[in-house]
Every structure is written in C-alpha cells, then in structure tokens.
Amino acid sequence: MTDFAAARLNMVESQVRVNAVTDDRLIAAMAAVPRERFVPISRQGIAYMDEDILISDGKAPRFLMEPRVFAKLVQLAAISADDLVLDVGCGTGYSTAVLSRLAGTVVGLESDENLAAQAGATLSDLGVDNAVVVAGALAAGYAKQAPYDVIFMNGMVTSVPETLQKQIRENGRLVAVTGDGVSGRARLYIRSSAGFSGRDAFDANIRFLPGFEPVESFVF
C-alpha cells in the first residue's frame, strides 16, 4: 500500500523546493492537499510522480499538471489571501484545492461536465468552502464573477484569448505556459491601463488545454 503522506512530503522536498519554489504558503498547501484524491484509483500510486498524470482519456484526454511546473506557475502568480482567482481547466480540482489555500475565493472552470462534477464533489468532501467549480467553455472564461485578480491557465495554450484578458482587473495577473507542443515558456501577463502585456519566466512543456491547441494549416 502506498504511503501517500510520505509520497507527498517527497514531492515537496525533491520536486518543489529544489526548483526555486520558496513561497512558504504554497509549499504548505502542496504538502497538505492529498493529490491522490484527484486522480483515478488506478493511477493513485503514481500521483506524486514528476510528470503529467492522465486523469481522463475521453475524446479530449486531460492531465494533472506535473508538480514542478504547477508549483512554479502558481508562485509566479503571487496570489494574495484576498485575491479572487479563476482556475481555467481545473480538471478534477487539484489545482483549485491548492489555490483555495492561497486565495480568498477560487472559481474552477471546467469544460468537461463529468470532471466538473467530480471536482466539486471532491472539494466538498475535503471541506473546501471558498471555492466553486462551474462547467463551461474554457476560452470564454466566467464573466459572471469577473473581474479576477488572478487567472491561472491549467495547461499549455498557444495564446491568451481576448475574452480572458478582459476578465482581469487592472493590475491583475494571468499565468500560462504558451507554446507549440514541442517547447513552451511560462509567462506572467499583467493587465494595466496601457493594455495587456507579458514576460517570459521559465521553460516548461506541459499538455494543452482543450480548445487551445495549435490550429493545423494546410500545405499545398
């Protein structure tokens, strides 16, 4: 039987701390949230491996982001205790659970209704009371609760839709890994009165969020 508490501690010490993650609140959150609860039973034994974990193999396969990249991306967002956060592509809810320990309120947005229902049930079972999961198109965001202090993109994207840009309050942040599927860069975007701009932060290569993949072009 897997000792999940030991696996969780090993994840924090060997994957998170050693990769320049120094935010004590984030480290404590990842040490507390039972990652194994957010993956299929058949994959719980590998829930703490430093790789993307398949959580749904339907028409659009979904993955739980690898711990190292996840931690660095959350740290990049610099989430405060009173922030309102939109978690785009929350999957089974692991990211929402971690973010809920850092922010005031978290809205988890998931396009797969089955995953959204599963996420909501797991968060409720774990006693998370400052987060809600809603089902809807990821690129559309969730305007009903906007503007957000932080938007967290839970997978690789080719670009950030203007729809999401407009749901960030002034001086708010959006973090995402942008790329083409071969290589990617984590970026921090800021919305200001002058517009929406971003800067590169670190190299990362994770799975695409559904609907954000590169559009194939025809070659004649």
Rank of each mutant, 00 (worst) to 15 (best):
M1F: 01
M1L: 02
D3P: 01
A6Q: 13
A7F: 05
A7R: 11
L9K: 13
N10Y: 00
V12S: 02
V12P: 01
Q15V: 01
Q15H: 05
V16G: 06
V16H: 06
V18C: 14
V18G: 11
N19P: 03
V21D: 01
V21Q: 04
D24P: 00
R25V: 00
R25G: 04
R25E: 01
L26Q: 02
I27D: 00
I27V: 12
A31H: 05
A31Q: 10
A31F: 01
A32Q: 06
A32R: 14
R35Y: 10
R35G: 08
R37C: 10
F38P: 08
V39F: 13
S42H: 13
Q44Y: 10
Q44G: 14
G45K: 11
D50S: 09
E51W: 02
D52W: 11
L54H: 07
I55Q: 09
S56V: 00
A60Y: 15
F63K: 12
E66Y: 06
E66P: 10
P67R: 06
R68H: 03
A71Y: 04
L76G: 05
A77E: 05
D82K: 07
G89W: 01
G89C: 08
C90E: 01
Y94N: 01
Y94K: 03
T96P: 02
A97F: 06
A97C: 08
L102F: 10
A103Y: 06
A103Q: 06
G104V: 07
G104C: 12
T105R: 15
T105L: 13
V107Q: 02
V107P: 03
E110Q: 09
S111W: 01
S111H: 09
D112K: 02
D112C: 12
D112T: 07
L115W: 10
L115D: 07
A116Y: 07
G120L: 05
T122R: 05
G127M: 06
G127H: 08
D129C: 12
N130R: 12
N130M: 05
G136M: 08
G136V: 04
L138N: 14
A140Y: 02
A140F: 00
A140T: 00
A140L: 10
G141T: 05
Y142V: 04
A143H: 07
Y148L: 03
M153F: 08
G155P: 04
G155D: 03
V157P: 00
T158E: 12
Q165K: 14
Q167K: 09
R169S: 08
E170K: 15
T178A: 14
G179E: 08
G179Y: 09
D180H: 12
G181D: 06
G181C: 08
L188C: 12
Y189I: 03
Y189F: 15
I190C: 08
A194K: 15
G195M: 12
G198D: 14
D200F: 15
A204I: 07
I206V: 15
I206G: 06
L209C: 06
P210E: 11
P210Q: 10
P210Y: 09
S217D: 02
F220I: 07
